[in-house]
Design a binder for these strands. Structure first.
Lengths: 201, 201, 201, 201
DNA sequence: GACTAAGCGAGACGGTACGTCGCGTCTTAAA
DNA sequence: TTTAAGACGCGACGTACCGTCTCGCTTAGTC
């Protein structure tokens, strides 16, 4: 009776950690990072704003930075969209880039990225996680798109796939982080055109 | 022509601020930012390391952030290199990009940029100064190069000069700030090649 | 009788303020005031000397002055001695004054008084507390002694009780604070003799 | 030849120190001490309020405390009144005490005394100066009055002159510094009466 | 009348302490 | 056993005054 399907784990005693708590913490963190970067994020504020005790926060994340990282990962995880085969390489690339731009522009993702980027350089763990979960994933998607393109004959077979990510997203982040120019609608198409001009057969 | 009265400014009384003091502060600041980003920079440490009183630092810069801004401006000012006419657009572009890359890689400039970029988003004043003094200046240089290229016939006359900066430097900063890929030697040439493929006649 | 509900106060949660901490702070404060007056008292030093964090001190007392006040109150509270009925008014008065003198001379009380007296004039809260807890208490004691004396016939029934305090203690504090003359042994007796010469029947 | 009249001091060269400057500094100091004790006195404020440079102040007084002392001395010097022979010891004593009370009550003298008294205990130089210039002078005046009284037969020849000062002024300062009771009009007479009850033949 | 002195204003400078904010750890009582 | 509450040690913040140190200007006596 008792255990039966409880998989292996033996029954927990005492009060159970609430999932709602974690969510509330991450939400507040996201908002605070968006409002003032990692510097504007304070555990004290997260606690005050959510009514959750500081202790509880530290029980789940070792430090402020780990908390910030968790937020970044969570946001990327949410957004993750796989590029489907549209039969046209240009259309696929534009859709891919445009989707990323839209996320950066219309959600807190942009603000969070701005707030965390300096942390990336200072914190190797966070940097590693970012590369594995965000950069590598994006490179993978692009690889698939371009391989399909090569098979279709849309793309030169000796195209330097490795630079695709930098050429398509470098300018996007340059605007977001440095020049401050707006991420306007046509940007994705223009970037894809430049890139295709280079790798077309 | 010059505003004559401007130079008449009435004589200063009192002890003059020592230029050596300012320089020492900026040096120490630069090193601390490079070592640990803006978060790793503390006025207390700058004071300790230079032997200059904290009050003296605050007398010149209102806050830690203003101090960081000053460092960024100073570094850019130092580096400012004008692209000379080499008779060949490709060569000029490569030289221009390669120079920037070299600075980022071989001086503290790269570390400082990493450390300050989050601050740019949080601090409009700093952002404005950065755009005026760094971005705009670079755009201007590129414009001159490309205009020479058009006159020579190296560059299509309807080339979108506005994107040059983003296409050439976006990937560079993407590596520096996000992907962590090294700024290797051939990078400048490859970027210029992509760009030229797009704007060649 | 007692406000029943008063004691029901809902149980405290969280770590309780340590009484040892408060005691250590007050001790160090007392010593520092004795050594150099309120000017010689620095929260920084109290922290260093006790190993208690500055923040902890400020959590309990809003400012250096409040801390000093707490010390004064604590010292008076400790010393509070009630004059018992000795059957002889002169003996009671001498005992009362001599006790006060001894405290001023042999404990830090004298130094603390010297250090705080200027603060009394500048800080109405402190002044009020001092009058309520020190002056008023002493006046009360004297009143009891003199009333017993009147009943015994030692003291004229129309004696001006109100001046007793000033006549007996004024000279004591004049020495302590202004003339610097030592608070020698026979002083209490001489003062009581002058006073009695005035109020004896 | 040379020295001869060392006191004739050889002629001063250069710009002469302005007496108005010193006066302005002392005035501002007096006001600031009255307003907030020695703690409320800042050289910075004296400079700001008078328009006189900090340097100039420090050229005349070595430190804040010396400045405060100077103010006290100056006030006492101004007030110094010699008790004239009125033919009646009681009248002379009352006049003497009442004059002191009036000064304390109606000028800044009272506030300055309150502000400086803690400094007396912490600063031996200031204490010495205070005793020599204020206490001793007052004791001297009282001695003269009482000697005249003895000659007239108003005062017992074995009167303890040494305590006169403490008995007459102790209560006054007790009110000013500790109890805060007002220095009312009849006080001088009552104190003198108590004192005379003790030393009358 | 030119040549020295100070005196004086302004204000940079090295210090010390202030009182505050946030970190991450800890203890306690309630759920 | 988790949680809310909150005391605690710590490190840095930015501010207020201290007393010292240049500066350049002003004012007087002396040569």
């Amino acid at each position: 009776m008792e255990a039966a399907g409880e998989s292996v784990t033996r029954r927990q005693r005492g009060r159970q950690p609430s999932p709602a708590t974690a969510a509330a913490i991450l939400d507040a963190t996201r908002e605070l990072i968006a409002a003032g970067g990692v510097e504007g994020l304070t555990v004290e504020n997260v606690a005050a704003r959510t009514g959750i005790a500081k202790t509880t926060i530290y029980r789940r994340w070792r430090s402020k930075d780990e908390l910030a990282l968790a937020v970044l990962i969570a946001m990327v995880e949410e957004q993750a969209a796989s590029a489907s085969d549209l039969g046209d390489t240009r259309a696929e690339l534009v859709a891919f880039v445009a989707h990323a731009i839209k996320i950066l522009r219309s959600t807190l993702m942009g603000r969070v990225m701005q707030g965390l980027v300096s942390e990336l350089a200072a914190n190797p763990d966070l940097a590693q996680a970012f590369r594995d979960r965000v950069v590598a994933r994006r490179v993978q998607e692009l690889t698939w798109i371009l391989e399909r393109g090569i098979q279709r004959g849309d793309v030169r077979s000796d195209a330097d796939i490795g630079m695709a990510n930098e050429l398509l997203f470098g300018p996007v982040y340059y605007r977001l982080l440095l020049s401050g120019k707006p991420l306007e609608d046509g940007l994705a198409e223009r970037l894809v055109d430049v890139f295709l001009a280079w790798i077309q057969p």
